[in-house]
Amino acid sequence: MKTKLFTPYFFIAPALLTLLIFFFLPVSEAFLMSLTDFDIYSLSSLKRARFIFLNNYLQLINDPIFWKALFNTCYFVLVGGPLTILMSLFTAIALNSKLLRFKKFFRLAFFMPVVTSLVAVAVVWRYLYHPRFGVINYFLSFLGIDSIDWLGDPKWAMPALIILAVWKNFGYHMMIFLAGLQTIPDYLYEAARIDGAGWWRQLTNITIPQLAPTTFFVTIMTIIGYFQFFAEPYIMTQGGPLNSTLSIVLYLYQHGFRWWRMGYASSIAFILFFIVCFLAMLQMLVRKKLEQS
């Protein structure tokens, strides 16, 4: 049967129209803004805005706090990302193991943090991290570790947020890995067992390679998601102490909504966009190379 020319458009139109009005138009508006010095003054009269071309971007390159925010974000992505993925991979493999009982309970437990609101759990984490009354320091004291001011010490604030993010997010990716694990055909394992391969060999020779597409997907999603690191520092530390948890998006938010420097804030957003684009492409290239070899 022939498909009429407009039929597919009929199906995608509602979504595209919504995206156009509430996403793409605003994004292009934001891009235009990034070429101006639109700020609080311009809010009442556009005469008070100047078209400054790439000046915002140039200023950004010379802004030490932007570099600090970029560094912090990379720190978060490079440490938090792999930790989250490893944790979710480990729990997924464990939950998929035939050895394990009470699977439903464990799965629920691991997934619990994902469904909760960060505003709400931030309260309890701030308390767990409390240098004096917090449980974490209490447990650490048994190991002979001195009290750590988790959220107040510039050295420890980021690790504290990373722990929180891993806790909050690994359950989600664990589910995706579980889905991936289910698609691995049993005969592969049977064949391996006949060949006398132990669980470690099965893991490295079958599970990990077979999971590669899932891992790729999860990695991309994690990178994109973690580069937009915002809610944790916004709620827990407001970027402090000493800007040690200031992320790019938080910096963007501060300029945009706290100081109302929308022009500058928009340029931060687009720099972030270019970075993530670049990383995503890099990863695709790497993957292609790996597949070829």
Partner: peptide, 11 residues
């Protein structure tokens, strides 16, 4: 200097 020592201002 170390904010660690004043985790709770009142205390």
């Amino acid at each position: 200097k170390k904010m660690t020592e004043v985790s709770n201002l009142y205390q």
